[in-house]
């Protein structure tokens, strides 16, 4: 596999990076940690003329917490920095846990939180060399017209395969996006399109700059469970992030995010209405499990079967509820 030919620019400020994007339009591509983009470039999935390297934007790597404003993380903070941050671990443990399980330790030293929220979607028909894709027939997502996962349809089912988005959806996070018209804020739930090809609401001239988690979510108990082939390296094949607030055995709030089963990370909204005001029971747990498998729809996008991944959604949901329930001493 060989790299396409491109020029590399290394802006020192967000405005400078935006100028590069404005000048080069569709021919420009952003790279932060490089752990997703560089292998994809090598597989011939992208052929930019200009690669805009964001690593020089040093002011975008901070992590701060304020009791009123909540948590702010620069998009270039590494996953290691997020996982090891005392602020994140203390106030938003589910995020530290999810960041700490991405890929391998050495990849977390490179990969950034912003990059993890902007990952390319993945599919076994897509994440292959040009030679492989040509030999097996190109797919809808790249160079072809047919989806090999669901040949009858006209949409792409490549999977959202990031870990931190599930935790951040559960934590009701927002993101800040810088663009030609200034900066805008967006709820993370509105960032994802549930389309394997056109996955996020990030315009060609825009850059994700910060991740913001509300102060009201600080102190929620949380846990993240995931499936992958090799537990030290691989992308997730199913992931469940749950946060709850429990007082005297009664659930006051609960939010559950799913990753690695659909073309977008998704919040299972029914979980909140099922659990709030209730005391935990095994029957409620099963109701949550049913809501989860109604939302999570794994297909044959990976080497694991959809049935196995769906079953693991059930297992993870049960485990997550039991874990947070026992920890709260409500039973």
């Amino acid at each position: 596999m060989s790299m396409p030919s491109f020029a590399l620019v290394r802006p020192r400020a967000v405005d400078e990076a935006l100028e590069h994007l404005a000048r080069h339009g569709a021919e420009a591509m952003l790279v932060a940690g490089g752990t997703d983009v560089v292998p994809n470039l090598r597989a011939g999935l992208f052929s930019p003329r200009v690669v805009v390297d964001l690593k020089g934007l040093g002011d975008l790597s901070g992590i701060t917490f304020d009791r009123e404003r909540g948590l702010e993380i620069g998009a270039l903070a590494t996953l290691t920095a997020v996982a090891e941050s005392q602020l994140v671990r203390q106030h938003y443990p589910v995020l530290a846990q999810a960041a700490g399980t991405v890929a391998s330790p050495v990849l977390r030293n490179m990969g950034t939180l912003g990059g993890n929220l902007c990952l390319e979607t993945r599919c076994r028909w897509y994440n292959q060399s040009y030679f492989w894709r040509q030999s097996c027939g190109f797919c809808l997502k790249k160079d072809g017209t047919v989806c090999h996962v669901a040949p009858g349809g006209k949409r792409c089912w490549a999977v959202w395969s990031g870990d931190t988005a599930g935790a951040l959806l559960a934590l009701d996070a927002e993101i800040e996006i810088a663009g030609p018209a200034g900066r805008r804020r967006l709820s993370l739930t509105d960032f994802y399109k549930n389309d394997g090809v056109d996955r996020i609401h990030l315009g060609r001239g825009e850059i994700l700059t910060r991740i913001l988690v509300p102060a009201t979510m600080a102190g929620y108990r949380g846990t993240y469970h995931k499936l992958r082939i090799r537990n030290s390296i691989d992308y997730p094949l199913a992931g469940v992030a749950l946060v709850v607030k429990v007082e005297d055995g009664v659930c006051r709030d609960a939010r559950l995010g799913l990753v690695a089963v659909n073309p977008a990370p998704v919040l299972v909204r029914e979980v909140e209405s099922l659990l709030v005001g209730q005391r935990f029971t095994p029957e409620l747990t099963e109701a949550v499990v049913q809501a989860v498998v109604r939302t999570g729809k794994p297909l044959t996008t990976s080497m694991s079967t959809p049935e196995y991944r769906r079953e693991m959604l059930r297992v993870f949901s049960r485990r997550a509820l039991r874990e947070l329930w026992r920890e709260n001493g409500s039973h």
Binding site: L8, R10, G34, V38, N109, M110
Partner: peptide, 19 residues
């Protein structure tokens, strides 16, 4: 392909040298 970059282990196969 692990190397240390300012003392931190990173994978040189996914790093652009010019970065």
């Amino acid at each position: 392909c692990t190397v240390l970059v300012d003392g931190v282990p990173m994978l040189s196969c996914v790093m652009l040298a010019a970065s």
